[in-house]
Amino acid sequence: MAGFFNRLKESLTRTRQNLVQKVEELVTGRTRIDDELYDELEEVLISADVGAETALELVERLRQRVKAEKIGDPAGLKDLLQQEIAKVLGERTATVNLEHQPAVVLVVGVNGVGKTTTIAKLAHRCREEGRQVLLVAGDTFRAAAIDQLEVWGRRIGVEVIRHQAGADPAAVAFDALQAAKGRGVDVVIMDTAGRLHNKTNLMEELKKVNRVLNRAMPGAPHETLLVLDATTGQNAINQARIFDEAIGITGLVLTKLDGTAKGGVVVAIRAELAIPVKFVGVGEGLDDLRDFDPAEFARALFAGDGEEEEG
């Protein structure tokens, strides 16, 4: 647990440094809690892409707690804010549901968020857990997307079901599930082409893939993961909303958290749409896909240096 925490912490160091530094700048050297302090806290959240409205709400809750609990010392505000964020992010979430035989995982998202890389990491992880994995090259649109998945498949030692470029992804989905049943694999992970959520025809294509999976195997897909780039701003809310409306999203994967982007928009998504984050991508290595733990995520964002040992 401590090892996990340290890795998460490491990957979030930049996020944390920025935020913690800012929060600490705010609370040190102040003797009382005033509007200016609240405004500045709100700004820290906005800068982390939490979004103006959600930031406003969080700070409002903070105000109410301060009032209700008669808190006078500004130094306690950081912890309180952290608690409020963790509360929004929810209790510790279950990770992906892989109990079905085979479990079918559909991975979707807009262009360039890191779907294929995430799939490779997830497949690797399943392999490490001793599961037999089948990858499905459902991105038949982007040039060389199939090759990209195949390169990963070779590296991890996992078979990839593919059709020609330009083929109907629903047909690939169907074949893949037949193959999966025949081979008795444990997990089927399907890649899809990146698509902007406002492209109606592409979203229809995705719905078809979803329908075909379900027809070929009732209950499938068992997990539908929306991959979000942590660098994305408020548009991620639209992405989550529209993909969810189209095919039902069971969880988010937040990628590229190893940069300076903070991915705060997931707080807004969780608050608005109640979709949990299940994984975070924290680097380019195959091992860099981590479970998302709301409490620790919030703590890692706000914890001061001496505190993390408790976790």
């Binding site: 892409d49 360039g112 660098t231 994305t232 701003g233 940069g259 300076t260 982007a261 903070k262 928009v265």
Partner: peptide, 12 residues
Amino acid sequence: VDAMTGQDAVNV
């Protein structure tokens, strides 16, 4: 640059 980039665009 991706048009969907958030607050981090300035850092990048």
